[in-house]
Amino acid sequence: MPDFLDRARALPRLGLGISTEYGARRQDGALDPAALRAAHPTYAGFLEVGVELAKGLDDDAQAWAARGWPTTYHFLDVNLDEPEDFDPAWLAGMRATIDVLDPAWLCGDAGLWHFGARDRGQMLLLPPILVREAVAPMAAGIAALREATGREVLPENPPGAAFVGDLHLLEYFAAVAEAADTGLLIDCAHLAIYQRCRGLDPLAAFDALPWERVIELHVAGGSEAEVDGLGWVDDDHGPEVLADTWAITEAAIERAKNLRAVVVECERNPIPAVVPLFAATRERLPADFTAATS
């Protein structure tokens, strides 16, 4: 198999896109992906569909896929570092969903999506343990999923409030990407949360990451909160983006020469509230960073 940077040449450029997950539009006023595409085609070049197989695809995701519009598949239910998670029934469900969405690639937070078995009431999201010993199991899972689906699998840095381990998050994901020979999805808001949590500059350890492997970026709003005097950031996907996140986004765009897609995560907000966010993201991208026409 060619190495990832060779394989990356075949990945389509999707441009600027939006995210959704099952039932996201049940909230009053939440964003209608198709309406955004109709009103602002360049803001909704593709749909990143968050999938928990136990819930399936909602009407918005199915309608988008039925029109043949571009998608990516964002998993919400697999602990990549646990081989037992790749059970035949789950894999069959994932393949069936891939058949519906025909995503450009798979991606998702490389963290703990559920404790114990994949069962009711056991879903959560915690970041990986940031130690050298955690690299190989995560890389093995990424390679296994790529092999099982025939699609590239881009691990994403998860959010969190309690990070454990002596590696910097970017050092960990650099090591995972090399070991799995894969690309990366960097969530700029999650990275800002991590840097702040560790008391670091927003661009700390930036040089540790092989930026040529970064295929996708996420930009999202967050809210500052406090618990018992500890400041933390709630990754609430609201319309207000932290200055740290913008600083990371700008530095990432400058370095990620193989960037194919940028998602603005704001799925539970009305379109008028997030149009400025899309515009601000668009401004930071090169003028020619649009969906490739076939």
């Binding site: 130690v131 409030a161 309690a162 454990v164 002596d166 949590c197 618990v227 005097g229 500890l230 933390w232």
Partner: peptide, 13 residues
């Protein structure tokens, strides 16, 4: 490793 976790960080959710 776990001792280093700030207990307040466990209360954010």
């Amino acid at each position: 490793l776990l001792r280093a976790v700030d207990p307040r960080a466990l209360k954010t959710d």
